[in-house]
Simulated assay, not measured.
Amino acid sequence: MSKIRTDGIIFDMDGTIWDNIPVFAGSWTRAAKEMGYDVVFTPKMLMGLFGKTMTDIADASIPDSDPAKRYKTLELCEEYEMADLAVSDMDTTYPGLEDVLEDLSKRTKLYIVSNCQAGYIETYLERTGHGKYFTDFICYGDNGLGKADNIKGLVAKNNIQHPVYLGDIQGDKDACDKAGVDFIWAAYGYGDSIDSYVAKIDDISELKEIIE
């Protein structure tokens, strides 16, 4: 496979940088029960939901015709997951991640765009100390915009001429298509298949080998 030339790698979060599902399954189930729903958020269920915007997740998983209550429930899920993550000592980043970030940050700029809630990316950076590797980041919770718009906005803001996005699900690829950005599939993440990609990696460590 030929090397990928880029002046900016944009990372997804869940299923690409780390996997918090072992922590969050209990958080979300507890929040749903508190709101009166008999919903058990299994790891498999969360794998199919993560990557969507929070409103889309609520619409897909909370059995209530009242959107306000669905979204309130997801807000509580977010609150509980952040609280549980704060007290967890589990390293949920994919093995070898920091070595990859350290290596690539010496060669190109690194960024994050996610559909997560506000504060989630900051929690990752503070929890891991990886903030020194990233130039900029943005998420759905910061401005209410979906991934495609945030990718385009970050690319324009940072004047990235040859961006590439690393994500794990078809929704990430669809956003890249809309944003006009090449897509690398993190096949070790949550997605079972992707319709097309410029490269595929089965381990985060392989990213170092395909970037020029």
Rank of each mutant, 00 (worst) to 15 (best):
M1Q: 13
K3F: 15
G8W: 05
I9L: 14
I9G: 03
D12I: 04
M13C: 14
D14V: 02
D14K: 04
G15H: 06
W18G: 00
D19W: 11
I21P: 01
P22A: 04
V23F: 10
V23Q: 10
W28D: 00
A31K: 10
K33W: 10
E34M: 08
Y37T: 00
D38N: 11
V40I: 10
T42V: 01
P43F: 03
P43Q: 01
K44C: 02
M45S: 02
L46Q: 00
M47L: 05
G48C: 02
L49K: 06
F50P: 01
F50Y: 15
G51N: 09
G51L: 02
T53K: 05
I57E: 08
D59S: 02
D59W: 03
S61G: 07
P63E: 00
P63N: 02
D64Y: 06
S65Y: 01
D66K: 07
D66T: 05
D66V: 05
P67E: 03
K69G: 08
E75D: 15
E75T: 13
E78R: 13
E79S: 10
E81W: 08
A83K: 15
D84Y: 14
L85A: 07
L85H: 12
L85G: 12
A86S: 13
A86F: 10
S88I: 12
M90P: 08
M90G: 04
D91T: 13
G96V: 10
E98N: 06
D99Y: 14
D99T: 13
E102V: 02
E102K: 11
D103T: 13
S105H: 14
S105W: 07
K106N: 14
R107D: 09
T108I: 14
K109C: 10
K109S: 14
Y111N: 06
I112Q: 06
S114F: 00
S114Y: 00
N115H: 01
C116I: 10
A118G: 06
E122S: 09
Y124W: 06
L125I: 08
L125W: 04
L125C: 09
T128C: 08
T128P: 04
T128R: 12
K132L: 03
Y133D: 04
D136V: 12
F137S: 15
I138V: 15
C139Y: 00
G144I: 02
K147M: 04
I151N: 07
I151D: 06
K157Q: 11
N158M: 12
I160W: 12
H162V: 07
H162I: 05
P163D: 09
V164T: 14
V164Q: 09
L166Q: 04
L166D: 02
L166F: 04
I169C: 09
Q170V: 07
K173A: 15
C176A: 13
D177M: 10
G180C: 13
G180S: 12
V181W: 08
F183Y: 15
A186M: 00
A187T: 11
Y188H: 03
G191N: 05
D195Y: 12
V198C: 12
D202E: 11
D202A: 05
I204Q: 02
I204K: 03
S205K: 15
S205F: 09
L207T: 06
K208S: 06
K208M: 05
I210G: 11
I210P: 09
I211G: 11
